[in-house]
C-alpha cells in the first residue's frame, strides 16, 4: 500500500528544550486510511499535527508527505505548499468572509472555483448557506463549512484537530458519523486528534496513542482494545482493574506475581458461577448512576474492589468472577 505520510524519529521541544512535546516519534499512514491520534491533554498530539502541517519546525527527525520530505532538520516546506487540509478545533472560519468566500479562499489558483465550491457544499449539505457568515451558523454547521473548506483544494492529507470537542454529547454521535461519511466518500487520507477514545474506536482504521510526547502504541482499533501494551493504553478505553497480588490471591488466580495483569471492568461478571476465577464479596457501598450502578466491594480476603454493573444486585453479598481469556497482560 501507498504511504501518504511517513514520520521518522520526530522530536520537538519548547522553552529551549525544557518541555519535550514530541519525543522520537515514528509512524506512517497509508493512503485512504483514517488515523486517530489519542492522548490526554499535554501528550503532544496537537504539536504532532502542527508539525505535520508545517506550522512548527522539528528539532529532530523528518516528515515525508506523498513521498516528498517536507520537514527535516535542514529544510522545511512552508505550510501553504504541503497540500494538507486542516480543520481546527474552533473551526477558524474567517469571520469577515461568508461561507462561499471561505470555501473559495483555498481555491485561488483553480479556474473552476465556483463549481468546486458547489461540489463541496453539496457534499456537506450546506448549499443554501452560501451567503451566511460564521456567526450566523450553528456549531455543527460551522464545522461542516470548515470541513468543506479544507476539502475543497483536494488535499492529499486531511488533519482534524479535536473535531468534536466543542459539541454536546447528543450532536456529537450524529455529527461524527456525518463527518466521517463525508471523509470516506472523498477517499481522502485523514488524521484526527482526539482525547475521546469513543471517537477513535468508532471511525478510525488505525489509532496512535501518545503519552508524554512518546508514541506508546499504534494499532487497529480492535487490536488496541484487546491487546493494549500498557495499563495506560488499556485504561484509555474504559475502566480497567489492575490485578495486584491481593486481588490475584482473592480470585485464586495462579498467574505469576512479577508480571503485570489487568482485567476490564466489563469483563468482571457479577453473580458469576461459571467463571474460571471466582470469589465472594461484601457490598460496602453502592452508588446509583442511572443505567448502571457502582459497587464498592470488600472481597473475602479483605481486598477492596470497585466495579460498575448494570445488573440488579440484591442483598449485601455476591459472587464475582472472570475468565482467563479476558486477562490483559503487559510487559511492565
Amino acid at each position: 500500500m501507498n504511504k501518504i505520510l511517513e514520520i521518522n524519529n520526530l522530536s520537538k521541544s519548547f522553552d529551549g528544550g525544557k518541555t519535550k512535546a514530541i519525543d522520537q516519534v515514528d509512524f506512517f499512514v497509508n493512503q485512504g486510511d483514517i488515523c486517530a491520534v489519542v492522548g490526554e491533554s499535554g501528550s503532544g498530539k496537537t504539536t504532532l499535527i502542527r508539525l505535520i502541517a508545517g506550522l512548527e519546525n522539528p528539532d529532530q527527525g523528518n516528515i515525508i508527505i506523498s513521498g516528498k520530505e517536507v520537514s527535516s532538520i535542514k529544510k522545511v516546506m512552508v505550510p501553504e505548499k504541503r497540500n494538507v487540509g486542516m480543520v481546527f478545533q474552533e473551526y477558524a472560519l474567517f469571520p469577515h468572509l461568508n461561507v462561499l468566500e471561505n470555501i473559495i479562499y483555498g481555491l485561488a489558483k483553480r479556474k473552476d472555483k465556483k463549481q468546486r465550491a458547489e461540489v463541496v457544499l453539496e457534499l456537506v449539505g450546506l448549499s443554501t448557506y452560501k451567503e451566511r457568515y460564521a456567526h450566523e451558523l450553528s456549531g455543527g454547521q460551522q464545522q461542516r463549512v470548515a470541513l468543506a473548506r479544507a476539502l475543497a483544494p483536494e488535499p492529499s492529507l486531511l488533519i482534524l484537530d479535536e473535531p468534536f470537542s466543542n459539541l454536546d454529547a447528543m450532536m456529537r454521535n450524529q455529527l461524527r458519523n456525518e463527518v466521517f461519511n463525508i471523509i470516506k466518500k472523498t477517499g481522502v487520507t485523514a488524521i484526527f486528534v482526539t482525547h475521546d477514545t469513543q471517537d477513535a474506536l468508532a471511525v478510525a482504521d488505525e489509532i496512535l496513542i501518545l503519552q508524554n510526547g512518546k508514541l506508546v502504541q499504534k494499532d487497529e482499533a480492535s487490536r488496541l482494545y484487546h491487546k493494549p501494551q500498557s495499563i495506560y493504553v488499556a485504561s484509555l478505553f474504559g475502566n480497567t482493574v489492575q490485578l495486584n497480588k491481593g486481588l490475584k490471591n482473592a480470585f485464586r488466580c495462579p498467574l505469576k506475581e512479577d508480571c503485570c495483569h489487568a482485567i476490564r471492568n466489563e469483563n468482571i461478571t457479577i453473580n458469576a458461577s461459571d467463571c474460571e476465577y471466582v470469589t465472594t464479596a461484601q457490598i460496602v457501598k453502592r452508588t446509583f448512576l442511572g443505567t448502571h450502578s457502582q459497587l464498592l466491594l470488600k472481597l473475602d480476603n479483605g481486598e477492596n474492589l470497585s466495579v460498575v454493573t448494570n445488573e440488579a444486585v440484591l442483598g449485601d453479598e455476591l459472587k464475582i468472577g472472570f475468565n482467563s481469556k479476558d486477562i490483559l497482560a503487559f510487559d511492565e
Binding site: 501553504e80 477558524a92 479562499y105 483555498g106 489558483k109 479544507a150 483544494p153
Partner: peptide, 9 residues
C-alpha cells in the same frame, strides 16, 4: 494558520 494551510503565504 488556516489561511496558510489553504495555500496563502
Amino acid at each position: 494558520d488556516s489561511s496558510k494551510i489553504l495555500g496563502m503565504g
